[in-house]
Amino acid sequence: MTGTATLHRRPAKPPAGHGPPSPGRTPGEGRMAALLLSPTLLVLALVIAYPLISAIHQSLYRAQSGLDADGYVTEGEAFVGLANYADLLAGESGQRFLNAFGNTTFFTVTTVLLETILGLALALAMNRAFKGRSFLRASILVPWAVPTAVSGLLWRWIFQSDGIANSLLGSEILWTAEGTASKLAVIIAEVWKTAPFIGLLVLAGMQIIPGEVYEAAKIDGAGWWRQLGSITLPLVKPTLLVAVLFRMLDALRMFDLPFVLIGPGKESVETLSMLAWDESNQLRYGSASAFAVVLFLYVAAVAIVFVKVLGADVTGARQLGAKRKARAADTTEKTGATR
């Protein structure tokens, strides 16, 4: 919890939030801080720690139900250790799990990749000065503002067998039946909805790039592609990485879009969240919790890898550190540009 504590302290005293406590702090100050933070910690413990621990605890149990002579359910919960987890690797439930795991990963990789490309293109388009720019920016936000379940319904309508997608393509593709087409339908709808998110975040990153950098590049004779590769992309990289990370964490939990667009229980688009939902719907809370815990670990692992390997700067810690260093060295103010 100390990590959370420092996180929450940071906005008030930014430089003191990292590394060992600054030498000037008295013991009384620390006690005061703990006291002031305790309500927050209590709320966090209630809404985060308790459900998480409860889910892990639940995943070690299994309902043992049977019928007695009169046809009534005899029910009890038995401690089964890691059996719920072992089931994820073998037998029929194992197959379903692996399929859902594969789908989740597949959707995450494909949608985030396409969204990033499309989002970058959108940001580049919006970053130019032209007439009607603010109108374009506002209109690009529309898909993001539509609730996912509603956009699922809209796309379901588009993709139904006599819908507009088939009549435009002149095809007879059964988008909502099991098969590759349904995967494609989910990817299209998801990219349509979330590319604007990446686009807008990246746009914000692009707008803080000073114009002089581009002017200098122009004088040096750099073309549009060279400017993109050597100035724009490196400078928006921190923003882009954070945007991509958020999208990945979101995509790994994908539930409502395939659920509404294609329907529950279709193997082609079943994700881990849908599987956990289905299990809890069948009152098998033990295995549902096991699915949820595995999903949680998977998402956490992806996040760790992303931060460690690609160095996504989520909390802004590096920028702060760099600023401090820069101030200490008393050099230029443009720390972002020198990196």
Partner: peptide, 16 residues
């Protein structure tokens, strides 16, 4: 991500 599991965990807690 903890938030993602919260809903299910709550359901699980009720079940318990």
């Amino acid at each position: 991500t903890i938030l993602t599991t919260t809903a299910l965990a709550t359901a699980a807690a009720i079940g318990l």
